[in-house]
Amino acid sequence: MFDLEGQLPADWLDEARQRLRDGGENALRVLFPGLARSVGRDALDGGIQEREGLKVNFAAWRVCDAAGSALIEAAETSDETIVDLFLHGDFEERTIVMRSLAVADVGPATVELLGEAQRTNTQTHFEACVCDSNLVARAVGQRDFKTNDAYKTLLKGAFVGLPLDRFFGILDHASPELARMVEGLASERRAAGRAVWPDTDRVVAACGS
């Protein structure tokens, strides 16, 4: 969908694909932990791109993230294995799996991992999953991911202080219920004498009443 392959080392990609053809998803599970070691963590070129309803800011991506996405696609990876790569992945693998969701259709694994993002307090994994793309916005209404799930995701982002602008398209789903949730957080913070999420007013304004 997005052309990221040009930024991956061609020899490495050929060899990895060969290993996937020979070994399938088992080979993928063995290749995945070495991604950052093999292709590095340099920032990807590209900035914000849009294709077929997907919007991603590749400035947030690294070469190893693109490599992970390429392998998941090349192996025609099952949803079960995508979730397994996250659950039994180390820190870097989990980041890569989360980021790869932004460039793929919303499948059962996406919804399950959006749930993991909601439960994790490893902020890197939360951000890799829900920020810098329109994944949360476009997941709404797909499978059993509901509008309210998107709200809870944004609320968690607000709770840890992430900018609204990193959740592409989320305000397309704005409603008075979202305003209520965001205002609730703000009122709790004010009562505690703590800083209020700077984007509170923008969200409330977009929610109408």
Binding site: N26, R29, V30, F32, P33, G34, A36, H88, D90, E92
Partner: peptide, 9 residues
């Protein structure tokens, strides 16, 4: 084991 032998740490 093969997948764990490849982990970063």
């Amino acid at each position: 084991l093969p997948r764990y032998l490849e982990k970063d740490s």
